[in-house]
């Protein structure tokens, strides 16, 4: 019951924001050229989604995002795992990882363009670079979240290395790993779209930048809504899996 009223309240807030947006624009309180109304924006969004060029841009971006994600997650997880499992390696490299993590990744973007040129590999490369550090650090946290007691129990009942990995490591790490996956995607999406906005020939990030430069506010806002919906949808999907796998976490 409480969950339902909360959901209703949330929907009400979102609707109220859209209504406020509509009113501000329609009444001319904010210059409609700077802020086209919500209804105009949504109409433009539908129109854009029907265009083959926009659909192609979305496909390009999606491919880049997925490629970067598919590279960064396993590679980062492997490095994170090795770092956490080897005490000496962890002691040596952990501060360095923290250094690397603290640097804003965007300052390296010009270098990616110089090395890879403008194109697919530059954007995937930058997306990978933006994501891998958070994956490494989250995996390290996930490995460290495994209690020694659990490993002792497995050992005392004669578990093999594979059984320990499968029956203790994996279920124990799963909640933290899923959370890491979710947060990694936020970094990944930001990286790829930033790379597209900075220098690109296609992709939805490139389109958004172009609409902005040409003062096409309706298209610009429609693009913003589009990316927001996609990002939220992915995030919620993982969160749904997360709650199903982490019921035991307190």
């Amino acid at each position: 019951m409480e969950r339902m009223t909360n959901t209703l309240a949330r929907i009400a807030i979102v609707l109220a924001l859209f209504a406020l947006w509509e009113v501000l624009s329609r009444m001319g309180i904010v210059n409609p050229r700077l802020l086209p109304s919500a209804s105009d924006t949504l109409a433009t969004l539908c129109d854009l989604l029907r265009r083959a060029s926009v659909r192609n841009d979305l496909l390009v971006t999606a491919t880049e995002v997925l490629a970067a994600f598919a590279l960064a997650v396993p590679v980062g997880a492997l490095i994170g795992f090795l770092v956490a499992e080897n005490r000496y390696f962890a002691d040596v490299t952990k501060p360095l990882l923290f250094f690397a993590f603290s640097i804003p990744k965007s300052i390296f973007l010009p270098m990616f363009i110089l090395v890879f040129g403008v194109g697919f590999s530059q954007k995937v490369g930058f997306g990978f670079f933006s994501t891998i550090f958070i994956v490494i650090m989250s995996t390290t946290t996930a490995v460290e979240s495994i209690k020694v007691e659990y490993l002792t129990v497995a050992r005392s009942y004669g578990a093999t290395a594979i059984q320990t990995a499968w029956r203790v490591y994996l279920p124990s790490m799963l909640p933290v790993l899923l959370e890491a996956l979710r947060i990694s995607m936020i970094f990944n999406l930001t990286g790829v779209i930033l790379a597209e906005m900075y220098a690109s020939r296609d992709g939805i990030g490139h389109q958004i930048a172009t609409w902005g430069e040409n003062f096409q506010m309706k298209q610009l806002l429609a693009g913003v809504v589009m990316i927001a919906v996609i990002a939220i949808a992915f995030n919620e999907m993982i969160r749904w899996v997360e709650t199903r796998c982490s019921h035991w976490r307190t």
């Binding site: 007691e149 002792t152 129990v153 009942y157 004669g158 279920p171 976490r249």
Partner: peptide, 29 residues
């Protein structure tokens, strides 16, 4: 485990398994 069973200090049960799955763990291995 054929000769020796061990009962540890608190909190050695796997929280992601039910009570019966925890008890079955040595057999599942």
């Amino acid at each position: 485990p054929d000769r020796v069973g061990v009962v540890f200090q608190e909190a050695s049960l796997f929280p992601w398994l039910t009570a019966e799955d925890n008890v079955e763990f040595p057999l599942a291995l």
